[in-house]
Design a protein around this nucleic acid. Structure first.
Length: 972
DNA sequence: GCAAGGACGTA
DNA sequence: GTACGTCCTTGCA
């Protein structure tokens, strides 16, 4: 008989470092260790010879919480960092994997896995069984028996080594220099820095083994310590005798754990396809699924993926909340956890720990020698993660030149590597570099290997910026974590900005750039700063970023936001970085011609306005205009803004124009032209990058409440389209010679999302049949046939549909349609009667935001409304409308995010050369070689239309329209 | 020199 | 009625 005990917890931790990092399933959930674990179980059960095959088997895990060792020594395992974030969701999944293989999964509060394994190993040996412990933990080597009845088996995959490696007495002797029965005495002396077992300071494994081999055991050695010849060694042993005894108790495994399952309970069970395949399919482990299918002669297609674990889970809004994969995993985990020691508690403890670490500007180092730089590279390699921040001479990542790099591997420490600080020069610059800085080429050559190392996590704040800058120096920063995006996944855009995050979470006010470099016109760029002062500012940023990471990252697991962050935030950042770097070509000449045209026409309108007003005034001043219209000319129907000024908005002027006031029309037209000129035709050319000749917008990934992106400098998400003059501006957005633009946009995505989440059968049917949705609505509401419907009727229905999405009010609808409040109210009533599910959905969101302070998208993004229960009725009403809109707008935003994240890979897989350039909420713009648009468009459409899957299977079809042309206007 | 308000471009 | 960003004027420092 053969007992196989698998060290589950040990495997996960070690495999995490040994396996290729960041292996994920389609929704981004990291599963590399789970996959490795499954492969190991398969190998262990199948690859052994028939007479070696285990008859009994169990996987043992560490339980959360304290053990007796914490009472012996309060520092035991105290300095261990929290588990890497990628690992956290894999703990419960590994337990699920064990169950899927029909193997008992054992863990006990108050005991480490090692103690349980020691107990079972001894029980099994005493019952005459052979025992194999699948573990490479040296703490278990004390269990190895000289006769081979208990052996260890190292299963961690290591390149260049056989997959399974036996550890018997010889290997133990190689490691510790003693026989297995004396291992604990050696460990008592040499200690263990990983577990924080103190040992005797200054004594390592070699010396310890020599002493134990000489004196026999620890107690004898301590009793005869006076005999030791070397004075220093003798004194150390005498002084630290007690520490050695404590250490021995810490490393000695308990072999009498009161286990609840006896040996008979561990007899191997046959694998069950119905347990195995739903799990493997949910994890998307194709290879092992195939191998097991062959072995069990089963067809995996007979089994659906475990709905609780499959990609994206099944969170929904509108309907009662179902669980996501993580929440289920967490619930399963919680069942094994002592109350009050869950992820939330850990996150809170970590927060308190980080806050207690002092911040000392004097602790920061300025790196000016190759030796210092090499030491930092070593520190990063040893640590496995590093906070990085680049300092540059511009806020525009496509213009910025590198001035310095700061790094931090330990909170409270950090360094600044200046590379581009310049001497003050004359008007043309030319002062040269400040002396004493390392050459930028050498610095980047040294850092490139760590910055690109897949096993070293680079942590930053707004990493997209650093990625773009470094990319231009030939460095592909990866993998990354971004504190700004973690915060966004947890709290929305509330605490954007390192300064705000530091103040809120760390009670620390960072040095402001203004205090360092001045403000306004006189503000210095970073390269003009004194290195010493710059270093304090820069290193602080890296230090603070690392602290924030320690505070915020554990909250992802605790607050069930890991999936959101891993699938919708982190993978998007590099995609946006590439889009920004590509930019889009803008035809300067077209814009210049338009500017001239608009200027002429505006000037004519201005003269006409002065004429009509009977006086000269600034048409750009609403104040002056209001006074002329309502005070001087005495027109009726003027309304005041909240500050008491006359309201002169377009709607007001439109009314006046209809009442026969020609000045109003003139102003409206003038405003349109000057708007187009000032915001677009004049401004856009100034954004053309001289290096690339293209316009590079900047996308804000973490600034919109609902999960949309925003675009600025310039904003390319509000390029005009609705008027004829406006569309002329779009013709200036062009593809270069030999290429064409493709515009692909979702048709009615928000109404489709509404139909899905509010479950409105009539809307779903209409989309299924491809009807004109506004005409259908009008037909239902006003009892008018779609055939020959007057456009005004359809227009009203369209306004109502949009109103629904915006959280309709009679006031707002009346305003929009220019009808009486009462009539608008009747429309809404009719709509609710016709589509009763809509009212239910709206009421559900209102109730939810009041109860929880947030609502949720179909992918689990929370949208917070801190003032949902405000005492101010109009504020409350506003929150109600926003809470209706947010899941719709937000779910649509999540869908296009998913499409963008997958797009590049899918295009590449299809062998299509297409560059994604812009996103405008429901539209993506691509640049492709002329002639390839016909192959590119189907792929683009498919990725966009299937973007929600498999995480969410929408109950409405998603439709994307795509066109190719030489300019954006024609492609749209 | 800066912030707030009004107006208006987009989805 | 939702969500944004930019330009311009105004008013105060």
């Amino acid at each position: 008989m053969h007992m196989l005990l698998v060290d589950g917890s040990g495997y996960i931790f070690r495999a995490f470092h040994a396996l290729p990092p960041l292996s994920r399933k389609s929704d981004g959930l990291p599963v590399g260790c789970v996959q490795g674990f499954c492969n190991m179980l398969f190998k262990l059960t199948q690859d052994m010879d028939a007479d070696e095959a285990p008859t009994h088997m169990a996987v043992i895990f560490d339980a959360k919480g304290k053990t007796f060792r914490d009472d012996i020594y309060d520092q035991y395992k105290a300095q261990r960092p929290p588990a890497p974030e990628e690992l956290v969701p894999q703990f419960p999944l590994t337990r699920s994997a064990t169950r899927a293989f029909s193997i008992p999964s054992i863990e006990m509060e108050g005991w480490e896995a090692d103690d349980i394994m020691a107990t079972y190993a001894c029980m099994a040996r005493d019952a005459g069984m052979k025992v194999t412990i699948a573990s490479s933990d040296k703490d278990l080597m004390q269990l190895v028996e000289p006769d081979g009845s208990i052996r260890l088996l190292d299963t961690i995959p290591r390149p260049g080594q056989p997959p399974l490696r036996w550890i018997g007495p010889d290997e133990v002797f190689t490691k510790f220099g003693v026989t297995p029965d004396k291992v604990i005495d050696v460990q008592a002396l040499c200690g263990d820095s990983v577990d924080n077992v103190p040992g005797v300071p200054g004594i390592g494994v070699k010396t310890a083994a020599e002493l134990i081999n000489t004196y026999g055991d620890l107690e004898t050695l301590l009793a005869r310590a006076e005999e030791i010849k070397q004075p220093a060694r003798r004194q150390k042993l005498i002084d630290n005798a007690e520490l050695a005894r404590i250490s021995k108790r810490l490393v000695t495994l308990e072999r009498q754990v009161p286990v609840e399952i006896d040996l008979d309970g561990l007899v191997r069970q046959p694998m069950s396809p119905s347990a195995l395949f739903p799990f493997l399919k949910a994890m998307e482990f194709a290879t092992i699924t195939k191998r097991l299918a062959a072995l069990l002669e089963a067809d995996p297609d007979d089994f659906a993926p475990d709905p609780e674990l499959r990609a994206g889970g099944s969170t929904d809004v509108g309907a009662p909340q179902k669980s996501t994969s993580l929440s289920v995993a967490k619930a399963k985990l919680a069942a094994n956890v002592v109350p009050g020691t869950g992820p939330a508690r850990l996150a809170a403890e970590e927060h308190a720990r980080v806050k207690a670490i002092p911040l000392d500007y004097e602790a920061y180092e300025i790196v000016t020698t190759p030796e210092q730089l090499a030491a930092w590279v070593d520190r990063i390699m040893a640590k496995g993660h590093v906070a990085v921040d680049t300092e540059t001479d511009s806020l525009d990542p496509q213009q910025a030149d590198l001035v310095g790099i700061c790094l931090s591997t330990e909170m409270g420490q950090g360094c600044y590597i200046p590379v581009g600080h310049a001497n003050p020069g004359d008007l043309l610059g030319g002062g040269g570099l400040v002396e004493g800085q390392l050459p930028i080429g050498a610095v980047l050559d040294s850092l490139k290997p760590v910055l690109e190392d897949r096993s070293i996590l680079k942590i930053g704040q707004n990493v997209k910026y650093d990625m773009e800058v470094l990319e231009r120096y030939g460095i592909a920063l990866a993998p990354i974590d971004d504190t700004m995006l973690i915060s966004y996944a947890l709290d929305g855009p509330r605490y954007n900005g390192l300064d705000v995050l530091a103040e809120h979470w760390l009670d620390h006010k960072t040095i402001t750039y203004g205090a360092l470099a001045g403000t306004g016109k006189a503000q210095k760029t970073f390269d003009q700063l004194e290195i010493a002062a710059a270093a304090r500012y820069a290193a602080e940023d890296a230090d603070v970023t690392l602290r924030l990471w320690h505070v915020l990252k554990p909250r992802l697991a605790a607050e069930n936001a890991t999936n959101l962050y891993e699938t919708l935030e982190r993978p998007l950042a590099p995609v946006l970085a590439r889009m920004e770097a590509r930019g889009i070509m803008v035809d300067r000449q077209i814009l210049a011609r338009l500017s001239g045209d608009f200027a002429q026409r505006a000037a004519a309108l201005e003269a006409e306005a002065h004429e009509l007003a009977g006086q000269s005034f600034n048409l750009g001043s609403p104040k002056q205009l209001g006074e002329i219209l309502f005070d001087k000319m005495g027109l009726e129907g003027g309304t005041k803004t909240k500050t008491g000024a006359w309201s002169t908005g377009a709607d007001v002027l439109e009314d006046l124009a209809l009442k026969g006031i020609p000045l109003a029309r003139t102003i409206v037209d003038w405003r349109q032209l000057t708007k187009l000129k000032g915001t677009y035709t004049d401004a856009l050319p100034t954004y053309i990058n001289p290096r690339t000749g293209r316009v590079h917008t900047s996308y804000q990934q973490a600034s919109v409440l609902t999960g949309r992106l925003s675009s600025n400098e310039p904003n390319l998400q509000n390029i005009p389209v609705r008027t004829e003059d406006g569309r002329k501006i779009r013709t200036a957005f062009v593809a270069p010679q030999g290429k064409v633009l493709i515009s692909a946009d979702y048709s009615q995505i928000e109404l489709r999302v509404l139909a899905h989440i509010a479950d409105i059968q009539a809307l779903k049917d209409a989309f299924e049949e491809g009807l004109d949705i506004h005409a259908m609505t009008a037909s239902e509401m006003f009892n008018v046939p779609v055939e020959g419907m007057p456009s005004e009727v359809r227009r009203r229905a369209k306004a109502i549909n949009f109103g629904i999405i915006y959280g309709i009010s009679a006031f707002g609808l009346a305003n929009q349609l220019g009808i009486e409040r009462g009539v608008a109210g009747d429309y809404i009533k009719t709509y609710f009667e016709r589509f009763p599910g809509i009212k239910d959905y709206m009421d559900a969101q209102k109730a939810r935001v009041k109860a929880d302070g947030h609502v949720t998208t179909i992918f689990g993004r929370k949208i917070q409304f801190p003032n949902a229960n405000s005492g101010n009725p109009s504020e409350r009403a506003f929150v109600e409308r926003a809470s209706i809109n947010a899941p719709i707008q937000g779910s649509a935003a999540d869908i296009i995010r998913r499409a963008m994240i997958r797009m590049e890979g899918e295009l590449k897989k299809a062998g299509i050369e297409a560059d994604m350039l812009l996103q405008v909420h429901d539209e993506l713009i691509f640049e492709v070689p002329e002639g390839t648009e016909e192959v590119a468009i189907p792929v683009i459409k498919r990725v966009m239309e299937k973007a929600a899957e498999p995480a969410v299977m929408l109950s409405v079809p998603i439709q994307v329209d795509a066109h190719a042309a030489r300019n954006w206007d024609e492609a749209h």
